[in-house]
Design a protein around this nucleic acid. Structure first.
Lengths: 302, 302
DNA sequence: GCAGAATGCTGCAAAATTTGCAGCGTGAAT
DNA sequence: ATTCACGCTGCAAATTTTGCAGCATTCTGC
């Protein structure tokens, strides 16, 4: 699409931070690019870039326009898929951002299930922390986001949500492994492994221990749920995860215990999209499937 | 905006029905236009127009694309207004489609009230039957629609709705003017004036009389609510209207009576917008004001 | 059944637009 | 003070778009 070059125009210049640099990136002269931008600003009626002595930067109007162009692009992609659809083949692409905790078990199964029905549909999965996943929605980098305890809900339209109590994970031969009713303070008395700041589980732990005498005192802090899960097999430590990231049976050698609500608030796992956006058919249908699966999961847990 | 010419390109050709005619309309050669369309189809990857021996017509893919372009355009307009907004002046334009019944009293007051607060905002009001008003939403010709008993609700996102019982309107000296409790069959026994087919009031009347012995037998059928309202002053007839179209006090010389629900289903007046669309600031704010006013109106009536 | 008219499409040259090159003035960093 | 990178502009070359004329095709009216 010819006129979509306006997109990469604004986008690339904004990213490069200067017209000359952007021009070099896209293999044209700076003067050509310069004039294109001037023409664009002229047609739009306002300045889009702030001219700094060191280059250019988007001004608020430019941010607004860029956002519009992004949405435009995403919607054109949707139309494309829809057109491909009506010519027979079920095509499409689903892009989803999700937290690490959801990644290893739940999502692969869901994707393969969907692709079994629609082999023409492709997927991209972006593993991000919750803030980045939300941001990707608003820049139309992802169609869907599956996140635990989101932060900004402004542009986030909730498709479905299920409660997810934080669970303690430990080795089968851990001293606490036999206690059927586990308390948070017991866990924290032991060596424990917790997620780094950007994760929702950490956030809930911080909330629960704020002002308490027994605070967080992790022996390991990590940004990999996989690592944390496996670590408890090596040292007699406790790590914290949410049920959806743990296989229904649980891995061999591990014990999983829900922590009671009075110790730790129950978190929420949300499936969401960009507010007000019309998703491509494939993404919308996949979202439906996810929502059903999540609700089923919640039903089974209760 | 340069690249928006693609819009009038597709739009005009579709409307003109042939490339040559469209080219003449826009004062260029048919060959130039022809090539633009070919290039566009090439870039888009699919045919957009059906080639008929007598001209061209949009194919389904083209319809989809046109719809996308319309939405794109409307959204760009929103961005424009938003940009104008942040440079200080509160500007904007609100376009609303409404039924005749709402037109004469309610809407003028609401518009003037809004403009008193924001003099920079302009309005266009399109008086349409409910089908046309809904259609205008989906083609982005109107931002808002205020309609009585809508038909297709597919693309119609309800902002607010209030019940509106149909009222009988007659002259003060009409034989039925003194009866406090009016029945529909009494009205239909008298000469009556009813709206033409496309209106919601007519629809409700049809529903209520279907299969009844005492059917509709209008002495006048009209598509002007103004005419019908005034007609009862000349002949001893009864006309039907909804409360919002009647001044609170009622015009001089007229009597208004609500018809009971068991005779005639209570209709609904809905304020709505195109599903999923982000309205321009001005329209969104005006919609809020309208919603508040409608709810207040409903509260006062009950 | 046949001329006439209208349609979409294409080769080629003219017109218009975009690009590249070189250079100017400006403000920040060294 | 000098250097450097930046945005911007005049002018000519390169590219793209347009107009013109003409082709094949299909429908219309007689």
């Amino acid at each position: 699409m010819k006129y979509l070059q306006t997109f990469s125009l604004i986008h690339d210049v904004a990213r490069a931070g200067s017209i000359r640099k952007a021009a070099e990136d896209m293999n044209i002269t700076s003067s050509a690019l310069n004039r294109q931008i001037q023409r664009l600003e002229d047609e739009f009626g306002t300045q889009i870039f702030e001219r700094l002595p060191r280059g250019v930067r988007l001004n608020p109007a430019g941010e607004l326009l860029l956002q519009h162009i992004r949405s435009q692009n995403a919607d054109l992609e949707r139309v494309r898929n829809q057109v491909a659809d009506l010519s027979g083949v079920r095509r499409g692409h689903v892009s989803i951002g999700c937290s690490q905790g959801v990644n290893p078990i739940f999502l692969p199964e869901q994707i393969s299930r969907y692709r079994a029905k629609h082999p023409g549909v492709t997927f991209s999965v972006r593993v991000r922390d919750r803030a980045a996943a939300e941001h990707d929605l608003s820049t139309f980098t992802s169609d869907l986001a599956l996140v635990f305890e989101p932060i900004h809900l402004a542009d986030f339209e909730i498709i479905t949500s299920i409660p997810q109590p934080v669970c303690a994970v430990m080795a089968k031969d851990h001293p606490l492994a036999d206690k059927p009713r586990l308390r948070l303070r017991d866990c924290l008395a032991m060596p424990h492994v917790i997620p780094s700041n950007e994760y929702g589980v950490r956030h809930l732990l911080e909330l629960a221990t704020r002002g308490k005498s027994r605070g967080l005192n992790p022996v390991v802090e990590a940004d990999s749920f996989e690592l944390m899960r496996r670590y408890v097999l090596y040292e007699k430590a406790i790590s914290f995860q949410i049920p959806i990231g743990l296989g229904s049976g649980g891995d061999a050698g591990m014990v999983v215990r829900e922590l009671p609500e009075r110790d730790l608030p129950i978190g929420t796992l949300l499936l969401g999209q960009m507010r007000g956006r019309t998703l491509p058919v494939a993404s919308a249908k996949f979202a439906l499937q996810l929502a059903a699966a999540l609700e089923e999961l919640d039903g089974a847990r209760a």
